Computed example of a mutant assay.
Amino acid sequence: MAAIIAFTRRGAALGRTLADALEATLHVPARFAPEVGAEAYDSLEGWTEKAWAEADALLFVGAAGIAVRAIAPHVRDKFTDPAVVSVDEAGRFVIPLLSGHVGGANELALKVAALTGGQAAVSTATDVNGLFAVDVWARERDMVITDRVLAKEISAALLEGKPVGFVSDFGHPCPAGLTRGLAELGVWVTYRRGEGPFLRTLRLAPKGLILGIGCRRGTPMETIRAAVEEALSGYEAQSVTQVATIDLKQDEPGLLAFCAAHNLPLAVFSAAELEQAEGAFTPSAFVAHITGVDNVCERAAVCAGGTILVPKQAKNGVTVAVAGRKIL
């Protein structure tokens, strides 16, 4: 969610319009907060610190210099900083100040300009030149950029008119400006790790891997982590988006701790639901005796929406299967 701050009554009126249209929060000085139905802020420094930690985007209604000074102590990295946009109180000029691509500031600036009838002052080189922007393309498709240096090299190569290749394991159409022909530098859309199809390959990893996990009662989190790391060998860990298991394990402390540590949701299925999963699975008479179904990890991963990529791997009382969601 975006957080909007305004400093005058005129700015607050524009801020109210933008907040309603963008489903954002509005913050103004206490003396006229009730007039526009906004939240009051105590200090610009305090508001900025809080919004920086909690909001996806910060929109300043006022002079760009105010925004620049407010955010300066917090700026760290284009891949983690929120979008920051400034718009004057008349809505004439909308300036994406920070995180134009990855954070979406350019897109937000264009939305604001459309609402105010103003001009978005987008200045990023690939946009100005109408070229493919790898960070925007990846963000729009919920993919992880695995190498920041190579991402910058790709933008630089395109600006210099050099060929940049493209390969997708999922059948993505080749984006305009890239090539399926020969190139030393290129983009590979894949779940996999390792050597790519180009001399210098930027891997874009979709967030679509599912971990199916089974374990003995009382298995520690670190034991589960080790088993997962081994099963994921050759695949991008940042692509993992969910963990799945049988409902008998929904309160398993080690498993819950693993999910919490990696910010992964846990999907649970009954034995009857797992039994309905379609496919060929690795059976275990012991598991069937304990749980009522012959396989937990593979079946759970399939029930969560994946196709098995790595079949059941067993290590220290933990079983792990890796499945991938359909991307296109």
Rank of each mutant, 00 (worst) to 15 (best):
E54M: 03
A109K: 06
K111L: 04
H101I: 00
A40R: 05
D81W: 03
V75E: 06
A63D: 14
L110Y: 00
G103T: 02
V149S: 14
F60P: 08
D127Q: 05
A156L: 13
I95R: 09
L115T: 00
A51Q: 09
R148N: 03
T25G: 13
V84F: 07
G130V: 12
A120V: 11
F32L: 02
D77R: 13
H74G: 07
D77A: 14
V144W: 11
A30L: 14
L98K: 07
I154R: 05
R141W: 13
V68P: 05
D77Q: 11
T80L: 04
G65T: 09
A67H: 07
F132L: 08
W47C: 06
L59P: 07
K50L: 13
D42M: 13
W52D: 09
F132P: 01
A33N: 10
R148H: 05
H101R: 09
D147P: 01
F60W: 09
G37F: 13
G91M: 10
D147Q: 03
S155L: 01
N106S: 08
F93L: 15
K78P: 01
N129K: 15
D135Q: 05
S99C: 09
I154L: 15
E35T: 11
R148F: 02
T25I: 00
G65W: 10
A51R: 05
I71G: 04
D88F: 06
K152P: 00
P34I: 13
V102H: 06
N106K: 12
T48D: 02
T48R: 03
K78W: 04
V85C: 07
F60H: 09
V36H: 08
V28D: 12
N129M: 13
R69T: 10
V134I: 12
D42T: 14
I95V: 15
D135K: 02
G103M: 04
L115R: 03
V61S: 10
R31W: 12
G117S: 07
G130M: 11
R76W: 00
R148W: 03
V36E: 06
L58M: 14
P73I: 11
V102P: 00
S86P: 08
D142N: 15
A30S: 14
K50C: 05
E49F: 06
A120K: 04
